[in-house]
Design a protein around this nucleic acid. Structure first.
Length: 465
DNA sequence: CTAGGGTTAG
């Protein structure tokens, strides 16, 4: 029999990379040579640590991630790169766990790793992601004692100020960086322009774009133009937005599909649908491929015009192209069909999604449930409800309320019982729905007495848990 | 992946 070869650290890193399931990857990491009883632990490469931490962090398997970090701490022959911890901090931030992020930040030195302004900035941004603005301010003031702030530090701070709606303070940060001799870069201006647009200060934003060349000698890039174009489109200044697009072409700023996606969606919004196809042509001519976002903008525009034939046309076109529709493409059409009372079509498209290789998500279910319930297709709605509860998708409280109210109004007694039963099983009836059911039921003789009725449901709910 | 942009359903 062939002797089992021991796996090398190098080989293991690539095996880990290939393993899609993060938990299985962890098993492999903890136990690389299953039949090997040797007492000395496997020597992992730094790459393996990187790969496994990334997988676990993305999957939000934080206990497991900490286990691996604990291993890493013991591996005295490895000096981990700072970026590893930056990533861990960001995973915690995305899960809204600022304290875990902070803890990670403080532990960096115990891993034989030198902490620089990079991890400071990452931590600063983590607090921004968590919307912990007070802590962020505190941390920023603290930061100056440890490291030298750089452009990135100020860019995060400017972004934070803008998100809080305090453009004045963002300006102050900008001035402070100039005083300290830190040169603003493209990101600085992009953040500022975006912040000005978001706070409806379009004139100032446009002026800043011109100043950045004239005064600071930084050339505006696509990011900045897209921010401005979006800002102008939001207030229906589509012609000014189109002018900016021309300016991009003239000054040879690299074009990308974001510019065109924004403009196309704006053209629909102001009722200039006729210009969309030539915009698409131009887009392709300039080397920008329309992507899913572009097509979703088109589908949304067409649906708002109730042109479902064209919307389906685009959807089908996407399916045979390399740019596949996503769940949003479907949800947009299903939602629009429901609004128009085309429930049959909405249901058909929903049921066709698996065949089209797109799994319906919680929004698909909620949209269809609302549509069916509003359109008094109570039986179909009950089927969808059961299916979504089975999958662990919970309807919105308003939807439940509306649906139950509809059943009560139309005297759908037996269906009402079934639906309440399902909802109680899914543990998703709020107090308002109960109140409504009880008060409506109490004056109808054909239904069980309210107290018995509620008792029965509560007992059932207790049994379930 | 230390920092900035685009469509959009509930």
């Amino acid at each position: 029999m062939e002797k089992l070869k021991k796996v090398s650290a190098y080989k293991l890193a690539s095996l880990l990379r290939l393993q899609q399931d993060p938990k299985l990857a962890l098993q492999l990491f903890l136990n690389p040579n299953p039949p090997d009883p040797s007492p000395k632990p496997f020597q992992h490469s730094p790459k393996s640590y990187d790969v496994i931490l990334t997988k676990l962090g993305r999957a939000k398997l934080f206990d497991e991630m900490e286990t691996v970090l604990h291993h890493l701490k013991q591996e005295t022959h490895i000096a981990p790169k700072e970026i590893i911890f930056c990533n861990v901090i960001t995973y915690y931030a995305r899960a809204r766990l600022p304290d875990n992020a902070l803890q990670t930040f403080h532990r960096i030195p115990t891993f034989r790793c030198r902490r620089t302004v990079k991890s400071f900035n990452t931590m600063l941004n983590a607090l921004l992601i968590c919307k912990e603005f007070e802590k962020l301010k505190e941390f920023f003031l603290d930061l100056e004692n440890y490291a030298c702030p750089d452009a990135c530090t100020y860019n995060v701070m400017i972004n934070a100020c803008c998100l809080c709606g305090d453009v004045g303070y963002a300006r102050k940060m900008f001035d402070e960086m100039l005083i300290k001799g830190i040169e603003p870069n493209g990101v600085t201006f992009g953040t500022l322009v975006n912040g000005l647009c978001a706070n409806s200060m379009l004139e100032e934003a446009c002026r800043l774009k011109d100043d950045m060349v004239r005064v600071y000698r930084v050339k505006p890039d696509g990011f900045i133009y897209v921010s401005l174009i979006k800002g102008l489109c939001r207030v229906n200044e589509v012609d000014l937005a189109l002018k900016l697009k021309e300016e991009m072409l003239e000054s040879k700023v690299e074009m990308d599909s974001a510019v065109y996606s924004t403009l196309i969606s704006a053209l629909f919004k102001v009722g200039r649908r006729g210009e969309v196809s030539s915009m698409l042509e131009e887009m392709k001519r300039n080397g920008c491929k329309p992507n899913t976002i572009t097509y979703n903008a088109i589908i949304f525009g067409l649906c708002n015009e109730k042109d479902f034939d064209s919307a389906f046309g685009v959807l089908n076109e996407m399916e045979v192209s390399e740019c596949k529709p996503d769940v949003i493409s479907y949800n947009v059409i299903i939602g629009a069909l429901c609004r128009e009372g085309k429930l049959r079509e909405a249901n058909d498209l929903f049921e066709d999604m698996p065949r089209r290789r797109c799994a319906p998500d919680v929004v698909s279910y909620r949209t269809l449930l609302d549509g069916l319930s509003d359109g008094m297709q109570f039986k179909e709605a009950a089927l969808i409800l059961d299916e979504m509860l089975f999958k662990g998708y919970v309807p919105r409280a308003v939807s439940i309320n509306n649906y139950v109210a509809g059943l009560l109004r139309e005297g759908e007694t037996s269906l009402l019982w079934t639906v309440l039963d399902s909802l109680a099983g899914g543990n998703c009836i709020d107090i308002d729905t109960w109140r409504m059911v009880v008060s409506m039921v109490s004056d109808k003789d054909k239904l069980p007495k309210p107290c018995e009725f509620v008792d029965a449901l509560i007992m059932e709910q207790n049994d379930g848990s």
